[in-house]
Amino acid sequence: MQRTVLVLNSGSSSVKYSLVQPDSGVSVASGIVERIGDNHSSALLEFGGLKVRREEAVADHAAALRLTFDLFAEVGGHLETLGLAAVGHRVVHGGPNLYRPTLVDDGLIAKLDELAPLAPLHNPPAVLGIEVAHKILPDVPHVAVFDTAFFHDLPAAAATYAIDDDLARQWQIRRYGFHGTSHRYVSHQAAEFLDAPIESLNQIVLHLGNGASASAIAGGRPVDTSMGLTPMEGLVMGTRSGDIDPGVLVYLWRTAGMAVEDIEAMLNRHSGMYGLSGEIDFRVVHQRIESGDEAAQLAYDVYIHRLRKYIGAYLAVLGHTDVVTFTAGVGENDAQVRRDALTGLAPLGIELDEHLNESPAKGARRISADKSPTTVLVIPTNEELAIARACLTVI
């Protein structure tokens, strides 16, 4: 029997999960429990070609996980019969010291609690998910895998903010970077696709989903990334602002009278594409642009402008770039975003093949012109598989 790893991603009101065979790379099952704590919660499990959906109240994360295991049992997929070897937990922020896959124990949970101020929207739900899953599955190793790990060793010039040094040290303020599991996985997949040693490649990886980030990777090691102390910095995202003058925050606090909590909520949940246009689905944004919607057009233009700035900056940071890779929901599926992000960059060595870019293919593929010195790829990310394989390095 192939061993499996149950990968959990616990949010404040949801639990996403996937049962993965790390050796073969096969996803045996996946699903999500949404709107936890709501009277209209929902749960979905996809297993062996079957889809099972439940619409019922789910009081808390413990109830969500129990419901998940009930759904497995309902389709004949008892975890004890599926070779479960470990449970892997995605943890967004590992702070300055947690950057390797780590077995869960009371000491680790205490450290994660201490890191809550660095990621108040992400780490507390992750800790809750870990505690609940550990109680329900006490006899299986639980492993925390950190989203910040890949960027732990950024060069000091990239990781350091130009603020008071003593203050930064006291409060552990630096560029941590996020989506690291995805950037690591995709950069290695790009090297494999090109049949080239990863040590020989300079890469730009563009992880474009509801959350979005860019990275510059030289010889398999990241040298810069767009997200910073928190996942709010960098590219324009679905509901997050990305880069913003810090003076805006002081202005909103001092002059507009906004509370810090309200400013934080605005930057996280009511900014980005949603803040500019009221929409985060790029399919709808494109439709609205075609109908002449000026707000949608502006939101899209701001998104593309920021993306192109980062591509240009990372071309300069790397000196030369062998491959640019698009990944995640928007990056993998939106040909227009890819085209607009790279249009006019032929003098810098990047040229798309329009036919390949417009192809509806879903797997890893090249979309650059044959004459393009820089290869452009689309590679589906698979953070669940990467987390599952990271768990094996520990157990």
Results as ranks from 00 to 15, higher is better:
M1P: 07
T4F: 00
L6G: 01
S10T: 15
S12F: 08
S14L: 01
K16A: 01
G25K: 10
V26D: 13
S27E: 14
S27V: 07
V28T: 10
A29Y: 00
I32Q: 12
D38V: 13
A43D: 01
L44Q: 14
E46I: 07
F47Q: 00
G49R: 08
A57L: 03
V58G: 05
D60R: 09
H61P: 04
L67N: 03
F69W: 13
F69K: 05
D70K: 13
F72L: 05
L79N: 03
L82P: 01
V87C: 07
Y99F: 15
P101A: 08
L103V: 12
V104M: 03
L115W: 03
P124C: 10
V127M: 12
I130V: 06
E131G: 11
A133M: 07
I136E: 11
H142D: 01
A149E: 02
L154H: 10
Y161I: 03
D164K: 12
D166I: 14
R174L: 11
Y176M: 01
Y176I: 00
H179V: 08
A191L: 05
Q203W: 08
L208H: 04
G211V: 08
A214M: 11
A214Q: 05
I217V: 15
R221L: 11
R221E: 13
M227E: 02
L229G: 06
M232W: 12
P246A: 12
L249V: 15
L249S: 09
L249Y: 11
Y251G: 03
V260G: 04
E264T: 14
Y274A: 12
L276T: 08
L276P: 06
G278S: 10
E279D: 06
E279Y: 03
D281F: 09
H286R: 15
R288S: 09
G292N: 05
G319Y: 00
T327E: 06
G329K: 06
G331P: 07
A335T: 09
R338C: 05
R338Q: 11
A346V: 06
G349V: 02
D370T: 07
K371L: 13
P373G: 10
T374R: 02
L377R: 02
P380Q: 07
E384S: 09
A390K: 07
